[in-house]
């Protein structure tokens, strides 16, 4: 576990600047370009995942402490269930027989 004795919170500032950049890039791509809906959603969706990762690792110190591995497994499982619930619901309810 790191002991923070540094004079300047480098990782926080980097995380903040990167988050700002990701937010603005996503906004510009969504609002100012004429890419297809699918392409835009893939790009800004990926940017959102990267930014969420920044928060978890650089701000929340998810991996520190004796339970760091447990935290990662727990959050990874939470994300897995989230993806199954969202993608599964959209798949079942907007395609095939359910759409008719």
């Amino acid at each position: 576990m790191e002991k923070e004795v540094k004079r300047f919170p480098v990782s926080h500032v980097i995380g903040f600047l990167a988050s700002l950049a990701l937010t603005f890039i996503a906004a510009v791509i969504a609002l100012k370009t004429s890419l297809s809906f699918k392409a835009i959603m893939w790009i800004i969706g990926s940017l959102a995942v990267i930014q969420a990762g920044l928060q978890l690792f650089m701000f929340m110190h998810m991996t520190e402490g004796e339970d760091g591995k447990t935290n990662i497994i727990n959050i990874a499982y939470g994300v897995f269930v989230a993806v199954v619930v969202v993608v599964g619901s959209v798949w079942v309810l907007t395609s095939g027989h359910a759409a008719h």
């Binding site: 998810m62 269930v81 989230a82």
Partner: peptide, 20 residues
């Protein structure tokens, strides 16, 4: 942290309803 894992799933259900 385990509670936050459950919160992820709570919000996932609401995102799923919205996405549909």
């Amino acid at each position: 942290w385990i509670f936050l894992g459950a919160e992820i799933v709570l919000f996932a259900t609401l995102f799923a309803v919205y996405a549909v």
